[in-house]
């Protein structure tokens, strides 16, 4: 039930991010979630889009370095302690989070949707399911 995420290598310089977003815009690609990780000289943009394969091919054709990795998506009740409850389950399942970020809004205002990149997606997913969590499918996320 993992979600395809695209990651793009970007130099940490003015204009580099917008070069990428311009390309996505020109190809009518909708960004459903976005996070940026940065170092002094480069960064990585991670995104959830409707069609990850199409977006990666398009980016590569324009000389960007991009690839697909898999993340887990969970709905979190938008109430105090909502995220904490979820993370407790991660602890119990002994799942290590490499990084996490949230979706850019949804139709249901009572819930937040969060994306987790974990150490070993398949094993972690099984452990989390065993602890009563249910990751969202690509289709569910797309329908939000």
């Amino acid at each position: 039930m993992s979600i395809r995420q695209i990651s793009v290598f970007l130099e940490n310089k003015p204009g580099k991010l917008s070069e990428m977003t311009a390309l996505l815009a020109a190809n009518n690609i909708d960004i459903r979630a976005l996070s940026l990780a940065e170092t002094n000289d480069f960064g990585i943009a991670r995104m959830i889009v409707d069609d990850a394969y199409e977006a990666v091919n398009m980016l590569r054709n324009s000389d960007f370095i991009a690839n697909i990795s898999h993340v887990l998506a969970f709905a979190v009740p938008d109430v105090p302690g909502g995220l904490n409850k979820l993370l407790n389950a991660f602890n119990e399942a002994k799942v290590n989070i490499v990084y996490m970020y949230s979706c850019l809004g949804s139709k249901d205002p009572s819930k937040a949707y969060m994306l987790f990149r974990v150490s070993d997606t398949k094993t972690s997913e099984a452990a989390l399911v065993a602890h009563g969590l249910r990751p969202l499918s690509q289709e569910e996320l797309a329908a939000l």
């Binding site: 995420q5 990651s7 290598f9 990780a37 170092t39 480069f42 990585i44 991670r46 590569r60 370095i65 991009a66 690839n67 990795s69 490499v98 990084y99 990149r117």
Partner: peptide, 14 residues
Amino acid sequence: MTPEMFTDDIGDIQ
């Protein structure tokens, strides 16, 4: 950067 070396994990690249 080369496509072969790129990963989404910044720690690995560092």
